[in-house]
Design a protein around this nucleic acid. Structure first.
Length: 264
DNA sequence: ACATTGACCTGAGAGC
DNA sequence: TGCTCTCAGGTCAATG
């Protein structure tokens, strides 16, 4: 779930549910998910306060309290947030539970514990410290920047797209989708791409991510042209009706259509 | 300095 | 059914 579009949807979800409500109690369910922070510090930063706004950089979600501290959430491969009233609705792998004074709860669930919970005083500084590149959908990220990145790395284009130091937000699923829409093979060396191919990738990165957000990052609502819902199951490319292949690129599984995404 | 690999953690699903 | 094996939408430290 949690690549840029998913986290953007989480952000919008929190904005529409959990802002401006007093937090009565915070329960840390998995201490091992806290990074550079103690449970006591988290509780102190949140209890008695309220969230007033949310922000996102790449795959990180930031929730600001009125006392200037931000709660930082990263979702690993399996994380999500959910807002609910009925205590029996608490998700199975809840790692952080916030009880609001209105009787509702916000849970951060992360089955595989590959995510992270921490605090920051400044999301911009946090992104710098973590050496995150520019967010793929935020101002500052442009074609020139993108071209510069791709021309200056020795890695496969899929790996470059997924490298959070270069561009923040794109992961395994959406890199496959962007490459498919641009008609480029995942193993193509970034350096070997020509200007036209780079422009296609750049434009597709933007439209794929935006379309996914539009569809609430819900695969069942994705545009029919997306390859993603066909990675498993029928494994059929909608463009050419041929079979979708699977390979390994940079240690991650990559799905692609060998006819529509010819290796250069 | 940069790119690639393995480790981290847990559970679901496939195959026997 | 129960066991084993593989894989999973991420990142970091160790390695080349």
């Amino acid at each position: 779930m949690p690549e840029l579009p998913d986290v953007e949807v989480f952000k919008q979800y929190v904005e529409s549910t959990a802002l401006h409500k007093k937090m009565d109690a915070v329960e840390i369910r998995s201490k091992d998910m806290l990074k550079n922070v103690s449970g006591r510090e988290i509780k102190k930063a949140l209890e008695g306060h309220q969230f007033v706004s949310a922000d996102r950089h790449g795959k990180y979600l930031f929730l600001k309290t009125e006392n200037t501290t931000w709660l930082v959430l990263h979702f690993g491969m399996t994380g999500f947030v959910t807002y609910f009233k009925d205590p029996t609705k608490e998700p199975a792998h809840n790692r952080l539970l916030i009880r609001f004074s209105n009787g509702y709860h916000l849970a951060y669930d992360c089955q595989r514990k590959l995510g992270e919970i921490t605090l920051t005083e400044d999301p911009g500084l946090f992104a710098e410290e973590r050496q995150l590149g520019l967010d793929a959908l935020k101002p500052g990220f442009n074609l020139d920047r993108f071209k510069h990145i791709l021309k200056n790395t020795a890695s496969a284009v899929k790996s470059a797209l997924m490298n959070q130091k270069y561009i923040a937000g794109i992961g395994n699923i959406y890199s496959d989708e962007i490459l498919f829409q641009a008609g480029i093979h995942p193993d193509t060396k970034s350096k070997e791409l020509n200007d036209d191919e780079i422009a296609r990738l750049y434009n597709q990165a933007e439209s794929v991510l935006k379309a996914a957000i539009e569809a609430h990052a819900d695969p069942s609502r994705f545009p029919a042209s997306f390859i993603m819902p066909h990675r498993r199951g029928d494994r059929t490319c909608l463009k050419c009706k041929g079979g979708i292949e699977k390979t390994k690129t940079g240690g991650r599984s990559a799905y692609y259509c060998p006819r529509c995404q010819e290796r250069i």
